[in-house]
């Protein structure tokens, strides 16, 4: 196919996402990467759990499973093990993946099953109206952390790296070119690839945390992300790592034994 937009289910557009929601951007980047791989829709399957992020497969023309909360990866495991020749991409969110689906996530990384997991991390539960998630930053306001979040958040990319995924990277919805390249690298890598896409949720997160609109949120992510090379340099030099910033880029690329990889 020529244009990644041909992968969209035109009869279902426009989608349900709020104004300025970053999920649409991540869909663009993922479809662009899938399109660059030269895959055909009939050989590609998108699988998701529950939440805003997980509505994404419904807007794509391929076969797709919109499953139960947190369980996208085990459903994908069943599909991939029976049909290794199908390309299976999982869309998930921070609540779906790290809270209710946390166990499945680390085990999929351990098994290193040949899936590409794209997580839209918006720091909160968007679909239910902005509750705190395992990725809500310390001090952030959500409907269930009205006095500021007092639990430390998960670093999903580091978690995936520690659990054994073959490819891990993190970008934001500002870094559309880099994110597309990262998803493509993930699709090319045998074994589990995990791409954490930090996205803005102006409705559930931004307006409660002094980031009134999507632009401010995207600017915030742009200004608070530090390229991996620089981050590592800071670490090596023993400089204090800024607490309000996060590294973006490639966390790991390796060749641990993988499951469900199609035979050549």
């Amino acid at each position: 196919m020529k244009d990644f937009r041909e992968w969209l289910r035109e009869d279902r557009m426009p989608h349900i996402y709020c104004t300025g929601c970053g999920n649409g951007t991540v869909i663009n980047c993922t479809l662009n990467a899938v399109n660059q791989m030269g895959w055909e829709p009939e050989n590609t399957v998108f699988i998701s759990g529950i939440g805003c992020s997980s509505r994404a497969p419904g807007y794509i023309i391929t076969d797709s499973l919109h499953t139960t909360h947190g369980r996208a990866i085990p459903f994908a495991t069943g599909v991939k093990l029976c049909r290794p020749d199908l390309h299976v991409v999982v869309f998930t969110g921070d609540g779906d993946l790290a809270a209710i689906g946390g166990n499945h996530f680390i085990h999929a990384c351990r098994r290193n099953i040949d899936l590409t997991v794209v997580c839209m991390n918006n720091y909160i539960y968007g679909m239910t109206g902005g509750q705190g998630s395992p990725c809500t930053p310390l001090g952030a306001i959500s409907t269930t952390t009205p006095y500021g979040c007092d639990e430390a958040p998960f670093d999903l990319a580091s978690l995936a790296t520690a659990a054994g995924a073959n490819y891990v990277s993190r970008w934001t919805s500002y870094h559309v070119k880099e994110l597309t390249r990262a998803v493509k690298a993930g699709l090319e890598t045998p074994g589990l690839s995990f791409i954490e896409a930090m996205v803005q949720c102006p409705t559930g997160y931004g307006r409660r945390n002094k980031l009134r609109d999507a632009r401010l949120m995207v600017q915030w992510m742009r200004d608070h992300s530090v390229l991996m090379k620089k981050w590592k340099q800071m670490e090596a030099e023993g400089r204090p790592l800024p607490e309000d910033k996060f590294p973006v880029g490639e966390f790991v690329r390796r060749h641990r034994p993988a499951m469900g990889v199609p035979e050549e």
């Binding site: 426009p14 996402y17 649409g24 663009n28 999507a214 995207v218």
Partner: peptide
């Protein structure tokens, strides 16, 4: 094409 990629609503072409 950055505008098209970042546009969350697939409105730019």
């Amino acid at each position: 094409g950055v505008c098209q990629m970042i546009c969350p609503d697939q409105a730019i072409t």
